[in-house]
Write a protein that binds this DNA or RNA. Structure first.
Lengths: 159, 159
DNA sequence: GGGATAACCGACCACTCCGCTAGGATTTAG
DNA sequence: CTAAATCCTAGCGGAGTGGTCGGTTATCCC
């Protein structure tokens, strides 16, 4: 398993927030119910997203969460990084501030990291996939899926 | 961390075997020493590689392991899969026999997997990177690195 | 044949992380 | 004031990681 459920749940949460096109905040309990996820666990995840500004919160009654930015300006790389921590294929890979990867064994002198070539490529593939996908895409995908599903349901009800 | 040390150690092992161009088997203890890895742990890893035919073993004195095929016919995807199990970005992704991904929540009817789009792309990126790299490439990379390292050492000795 | 060498095999173990719960404190709308 | 919501910290059971250990089998060399 490349990622844990934190990424899965967190992304689902972000999509759910993204579907709320007006700025009204969505209560976490609503998300928990519609996605059938444990509320108290979601609280931990949303805290991570809030810390990096991906979501904003409004406390008190009728409060909730909303996106910190428009969905089409949110790369999924940021989301997953906030939830899972830095994306590194291997223990010895420390994330360089500027996208580049760095192997902490490198200074060992001997050929410690023949594997660096491989992990660098893997990391490139992952970050490219994540950075190349915006939240808006996922929201649209979900919307289509929901429409298809509800029209199926309507057909069943009609029959 | 995308992968555990199993992949790291296992790949290092494969590279080490690949550097032995003649068919002579390499004792695991030799690999363990030159890569500074625990021998008894390597035994478990090499067992997985043997089970899928990536390496062959010769028992008894002067025995050891050799590659099951030429290094340039070994995709790293196979190696990593043998070591880490099927590459799936998320719990619900079951590996289809034919490269395609399949989400086990899909039949839920509701929009369970808006995230499928994202994980599919991620998985594509990873498998592409892994499948597009052969063991031969890594062996060559290690050889260059070793050459540079030893020539540096020679320079130091000469000075 | 008898060592020595090395692949095999299975059990076990400490530790960490994941997924989740519990309980409370704080803020805010009505 | 009170209900609803965010926020915060602590803990916890289970699973997986990263090994270790002891023993068994196969093979070469003398």
């Amino acid at each position: 398993m490349l990622f844990s459920t934190r990424a899965e749940y967190g992304v689902r949460l972000m999509v759910e927030l993204g579907r709320q096109e007006d700025g009204a905040p969505v209560a976490l309990s609503a998300v928990a119910e519609s996605e059938r996820l444990p509320l108290s666990y979601l609280e931990h995840l949303v805290a991570k997203l809030r810390k990096v500004g991906l979501v904003e919160s409004q406390r008190g009654a009728h409060g909730g969460y909303r996106l910190g930015r428009p969905a089409d300006e949110i790369e999924m790389l940021e989301v997953v990084q906030a939830l899972e921590g830095a994306i590194a294929p291997m223990e010895c890979f420390e994330p360089d501030p500027e996208g580049k990867v760095f192997c902490s064994h490198e200074s060992d002198g001997d050929r410690a990291c023949a594997t660096k070539l491989l992990w660098t490529r893997v990391q490139g593939g992952v970050t490219k996939a994540l950075a190349g996908t915006t939240l808006a895409e996922l929201v649209e995908f979900a919307e289509q899926h929901a429409a298809a599903s509800s029209s199926r349901a309507a057909a069943v009800n009609a029959a």
